[in-house]
Nucleic acid binder design. Sequence first.
DNA 1: AGCCAACCTTGACCCAGATCAACAAGGAAG
DNA 2: CTTCCTTGTTGATCTGGGTCAAGGTTGGCT
Lengths: 248, 248
Amino acid sequence: MPVDRGLAVSQECADCPIRHRAVCARCENDELQQLEDIKYYRKFEAGQNVIWSGDRMDFVGSVVSGIATLTQTMEDGRTQMVGLLLPSDFVGRPGRDTAPYDVVATTDLVMCCFRKKPFESLMVSTPNIAQRLLQMTLDELDAAREWMLVLGRKTAREKIASLLSIFARRDASINMSMATGRIVFDLPLTREAMADYLGLTLETVSRQISALKRDGVIELEGKRHVTVPDMDLLLEEAGDDSDGGMLV
Amino acid sequence: MPVDRGLAVSQECADCPIRHRAVCARCENDELQQLEDIKYYRKFEAGQNVIWSGDRMDFVGSVVSGIATLTQTMEDGRTQMVGLLLPSDFVGRPGRDTAPYDVVATTDLVMCCFRKKPFESLMVSTPNIAQRLLQMTLDELDAAREWMLVLGRKTAREKIASLLSIFARRDASINMSMATGRIVFDLPLTREAMADYLGLTLETVSRQISALKRDGVIELEGKRHVTVPDMDLLLEEAGDDSDGGMLV
DNA sequence: AGCCAACCTTGACCCAGATCAACAAGGAAG
DNA sequence: CTTCCTTGTTGATCTGGGTCAAGGTTGGCT
């Protein structure tokens, strides 16, 4: 049941993690068609919840555009972001139907969804999909473990630099001036959301961003527009080896 | 190439995560036989490295007995444990051959291993194995994300209580006196290893364990032997909802 | 038995980051 | 244009956990 036809199919298919080359190369055409048949789009506005923790979850899907976050909350209100969903990232878990955390759209968001039941049966009949999903899940696990190092052992400054380098890396190919090597991007998260991801308070986030700006590691225009003049320097501030240990 | 025949096959097969009922129920007998053919055992002494970060990894496997840890290290020596492998947990990643972190035996350890190449081809020919591996990886991902909340938002006392409740939960079925509800177990980690897992220093771990003992949340005999008189109280100290949100 | 080397505990002090608080900068609505 | 409200910045102060340091336990080894 397609909800929105405004998107060109070719555009979002290019990034679809399920209909990825690794799968498609070996797929029968009618398997791809079956995927096509059960897919639909959902749009969310910035700030909307895609899923509430504990809710029944009857679909799986991937991000087409925009950014969503996975957030866990303790009874007393402390929150920790446990995942950041960028375009082409996958949400949902075949074989379970209650969401274990909130999924929130932090920007306007478009998702490509598959109803869970048909997707699951397709997964059984199409081993390639399960294999592909396994690879994706292993990647996510690596990213989660990388983030455990950030949360457990890095200083506030290193944490901020680590987060900025995720965005910078993500956008480097698109927005990097080849001549100067400067990377430019807009922060897709508020200071508070960054704090939730990094296990900090929003004040500390603000202060450390100011400090990195003062020290010339980044340049800031307004509150969100960031320029990274020297990616290696940023990675050094993040405490990563400069040849790029980050996995996200 | 079996390395050790001293183990009764029936014993460790009961817990083998790969030859799990979910897989076996649907497996052809010769598929199970194929797994049997490529499996071998490896033993490690407490303190030995199973794998070094960056090493070539030509096997996958699961823990039969003992405990191993996954540890990441920064260039300056800061370390963060990113995973705890208890019996029946799986190690290794089909489709990648360099280990991303150290795997260390913290107690004497027996692993059941499969050479990676044959295992991978078996995975392709036996979709059930990939499906099972996907479920296991999703469980690990949930555990990793649960741990991100521990690392990012919990206090030292809550962190210790969270870790203790993992061990307590694990051993509850075996070592709980039904009459009193008291759970008894031995800590399988040094104070330093606990600190590495919790993002703390060993001194803080020691102090908080002493505090929990002083407050009657746990009882201690020697340095390692723990009694939990009231599991609900421990879970409350951990900041979990008492009906058991922990996933490991 | 006695010694040594891990491993653990406890105390004193310090500091990174939390907390509390005041204010600035947009941007949407009237 | 003014007002309000969200988001972000910055300062002052406080504190949980880190750091440094001094013993205490225990178990293996000669």
